[in-house]
Computed example of a mutant assay.
Amino acid sequence: MSFPNVWHHRKVAETAAKACEICHRPSSSVLITPDNKDWFYACPMHLKDTKFCTPIIDHEAIAARKKREEDEEIARLKKEYEEKQRKKKEKEAEKDKGKDGKKEKDEKDEKKDESKPGETGKRKEAGAPPKDEEPKVFALQKTFYQQRLNKKRQAEMAKKMRERIKEPDFFPAVPKGDL
């Protein structure tokens, strides 16, 4: 009847919040086993407590996400660099034509263009949500895990007892004959 000590954190609707298993305050956070054999409500405050549970960190997923973010950043920087090079070539071509009046305007435009890429990068960084996500997988400490196993075992024993009581030969028969 044992199940692994791996618990996934799930959120339920605030209207479906029930009492936390530890402190009995309403909570919309649920810890559930991967095979859905056991689950219980727990406060987010308890999930941060290392004496209750510890997060299981998937280093491969973090490395993959970091690599993907780096690739996106490299692609964005390459695009900006190519755009600057293209504008620079266009301005050199205009200067070769010898248009004096437009040279001053081009220099002003160039200053504006140089400031724009930095601003867009800052806007993207400011608008992006923080990447510090809460852990989603936990391992309960030994005592809490043992409590869950005991509770599940007791519930199963109670279920078996209810089934046995329904059987007709569970109770002793009434004595027959004279005494």
Rank of each mutant, 00 (worst) to 15 (best):
E92C: 06
G121Q: 07
G121D: 02
K116G: 00
D96V: 05
K99P: 02
G121E: 00
E110P: 08
E90W: 09
D106I: 15
E114R: 14
K112R: 10
D109N: 14
E110W: 10
G118I: 14
K124W: 01
K97E: 14
E125L: 14
K122R: 15
K102L: 03
P117C: 01
K102R: 15
D100S: 10
G121N: 04
R123K: 15
K89F: 12
P117H: 05
K112Q: 14
K89C: 02
E92W: 03
T120Q: 07
K95N: 01
K97A: 03
K108V: 01
K108R: 01
E90Q: 14
K122F: 09
K88A: 03
E119P: 02
K124G: 00
P117R: 02
G118D: 02
K111V: 12
K91H: 03
K95H: 06
E119A: 01
T120V: 06
D109T: 08
K88S: 04
K91R: 15
K124Q: 02
G127R: 13
E107Y: 01
K116M: 12
E94S: 05
K105C: 06
E125M: 10
K111T: 08
K97F: 04
D109E: 15
K89L: 03
A93S: 09
E94N: 13
D100L: 15
K97T: 05
K89N: 06
S115W: 11
D100A: 12
K122M: 11
G121P: 00
E90C: 04
K102W: 05
E92P: 02
K103G: 04
G127T: 05
A126Y: 06
E90L: 10
K108M: 00
G121I: 15
P117Y: 12
